[in-house]
């Protein structure tokens, strides 16, 4: 793996007697979309605040591009907090320019970038509107623009899709993917693990201040694959079918959506068995209409991991 853009090393953060982060280490690779997943109160926001230098870790360190975090890194990071907010009585354009300048952009450069984004999202008419005149979804768009205006190389989005309607959520999703393709690294933090699963290349699971799992999404999933297949079959004789598979495979009733009402089973392969063998066996007993490996969702993995401990 190439050197990571962000490296979190044994970070500990305590608030009084409460431990928010218990020696957490992470490696976020360049150009990835990295899911920082975990339930509410797991410590995600504490970690993000440390990366943003809003708070300091009690011990441990954070490296950005191999350098210890320092104030000059502020301009390289874009952060959209979970609790969205803008100055309600300030005009959109003025406000975006102000926030971009705080991140170190010159006024002219900020204006140029802002025009680019306004055109791209087709919101040119909003420049002189006040935030309080905009709808919540419109304000969210501005919030996103403000976050990416200074072209950060690391983008941290906390619950990025909450509050967006499906249309706007898709627009933002496309923009995020486009940014990733241009080399921006994106960290998603969310407790709704299914919402970003399909976008993430890497994930880390955090629960109760501890990191439980970290790695490329595919590998994590492979680790947790259970060799279980969802099978839809129209058997010639149902008793023969069960007699034929019951001694070799574990089966149980499954529920997934299909067009006909065939027999739906969840079949778990024993050690060493292959899917081809299962399929061949099944074909002897009827028409197979559905045959899919059951891929564990991040949520499943999470529940499994947490309950194992």
């Amino acid at each position: 793996m190439a050197s990571p853009i962000l490296e979190v090393k044994n970070v500990v953060k305590q608030y009084g007697n409460y431990t928010a982060l218990n020696s957490v280490s992470l490696q976020v690779p360049h150009g990835s979309i990295y899911g920082l997943l975990g339930p509410n109160g797991a410590g995600k926001t504490s970690l993000i605040r440390i990366i943003n230098q809003i708070t300091m870790p009690d011990s441990g360190e954070v490296l950005l591009d191999g350098e210890k975090l320092n104030p000059s890194h502020i301009s390289h990071i874009g952060y959209m907090p979970e609790e969205r907010g803008l100055y309600k009585t300030m005009k959109v354009g003025e406000q975006a320019l102000y926030l971009a300048q705080l991140k170190g952009l010159s006024k002219a450069e900020a204006r140029k970038q802002l025009q680019y984004w306004f055109e791209k999202l087709e919101i040119q008419g909003w420049w002189n509107k006040k935030i309080q005149e905009l709808s919540k979804g419109m304000a969210q768009k501005i919030q996103f623009v403000v976050t990416v205006l200074h072209q950060p190389k690391l983008l941290i989005l906390d619950e990025p899709f909450s509050g967006f309607d499906p249309v706007n959520a898709n627009i933002i999703k496309d923009e995020i993917l486009a940014l990733r393709d241009k080399g921006t690294t994106v960290i998603f933090s969310t407790h709704r693990m299914e919402s970003v699963e399909d976008m993430c290349d890497y994930i880390a699971l955090i629960n109760k201040s501890d990191k439980l799992i970290e790695g490329p999404l595919q590998e994590v999933k492979k680790q947790y694959r259970s060799n279980t297949f969802e099978v839809g079959i129209v058997p010639v004789n149902i008793e023969q079918l069960f007699a034929g598979i019951a001694n070799r495979y574990t089966t149980k009733q499954a529920s997934f959506k299909t067009l006909d009402d065939e027999l739906k089973l969840e079949v778990t392969l024993p050690e060493g068995a292959t899917s081809r063998e299962l399929l061949q066996t099944l074909l002897q007993y009827g028409d197979v209409t559905y045959f899919v490996e059951k891929i564990p969702s991040v949520n499943d993995i999470f529940i499994q991991t947490v309950s194992k401990r």
Binding site: I54, Y79, Y87
Partner: peptide
């Protein structure tokens, strides 16, 4: 307004 977190970042 909750803008504070953006500002302090």
């Amino acid at each position: 307004n909750r803008i504070i977190e953006i500002i302090v970042s």
